[in-house]
Amino acid sequence: MEEKKVTRVAAVGDIHVKETDKGKWVEYFKEVSDRADVLIICGDLTDTGDEDEAQILANELRACSIPVICVLGNHDYEKGRHKLIRQAIQSHNVHVLDGEAIVIGGVGFAGVKGFGGGFDRYLLTMFGEDANKAYVQEAVDEALHLERALNKLDGEHEVDKKIAILHYSPIKATVIGEPEEIFPFLGSSRLAEPLIRNNVIAAFHGHAHAGTLEGRINNSNIKVFNVAKPVLIKAGYDFPFYILEV
């Protein structure tokens, strides 16, 4: 009987690399490389959304000998230089996803930034002022991008093991710990719907620095992990990255 291959997926978010971080991340990425087969970074790659910070990260990532898959976060959009950030970081070994999918080690990864809007019965609806409708539309669009990316894993790649990479949370459970007043800005239940329809095995996100490490989408076996670096540090990880064996 053929033994099933196990892929060790390391995940972290909200690393907030600064221009002063030269050399800071080398040992971290070497450690990840020793302990995992692929690294996920769930957004907020940079601290202020500057391409110079992205270039520092790109240089640090040379110490990573395993494939890296990223999505951007709200900090990476702060100065409107997100395209330059993506360009600086993307390489043959580093893949920045924005509605795309990739297969590594027999596991399919689909990634988007996501957006806010709230959860469950408190989900913001498309009603009222144009500004409010635009906010909701952004969340809808991100959910559609995620759906299309996951669909590619069924169509083009045909993989059974699917993982979603986000910056914003698809469930309330993993943002608990943050003030309830800001829950609508930390994620959206709209992001959970594509995960359920496409039978992902897990989803990773960041953004909620004071949130909860692990949750589950209601009435499903889909695990959701908040791997924001501060959450992992609070949970006692010496090297703040979470490993899931797939």
Rank of each mutant, 00 (worst) to 15 (best):
D14G: 01
S188I: 03
L195V: 07
L97E: 09
H167V: 06
E78V: 08
H209W: 06
F115D: 09
G206Q: 02
L61A: 07
K223M: 05
V112E: 00
K5D: 13
S169W: 12
E51W: 09
E53Q: 05
T48N: 14
G206H: 02
W25K: 00
I196D: 03
F239N: 07
A208V: 04
E27S: 13
F183T: 02
I15K: 03
I89R: 05
F225E: 01
A88Y: 02
V9C: 07
A110N: 09
I176C: 15
G23M: 05
Y237E: 01
M126A: 12
I104Q: 13
E214T: 14
F109K: 05
A210Y: 09
D130Q: 10
S189T: 13
F183H: 05
V9L: 11
P170F: 02
G117A: 02
V224M: 03
F241N: 07
E51L: 06
L124E: 15
I89V: 10
L45M: 10
Y237V: 02
A58K: 06
G116M: 06
L153N: 03
A139G: 13
E156H: 08
I41Y: 12
S33C: 06
A131P: 00
R121Q: 11
K79R: 15
Y168N: 03
I171C: 07
Q90W: 00
M126W: 02
D52Q: 09
V94F: 01
I217S: 02
H167G: 04
K4H: 09
I196N: 04
I41P: 12
V159E: 15
T125M: 13
T20V: 09
G80M: 12
K113I: 15
D160R: 06
L57I: 04
R8V: 02
P230W: 00
C42V: 06
F241L: 07
N132R: 15
I15G: 03
D21Q: 04
T20N: 11
Y122E: 14
G106K: 03
E138W: 07
V107I: 12
K162C: 11
A110F: 08
T125V: 14
L45A: 09
I176S: 14
H157C: 11
I196L: 06
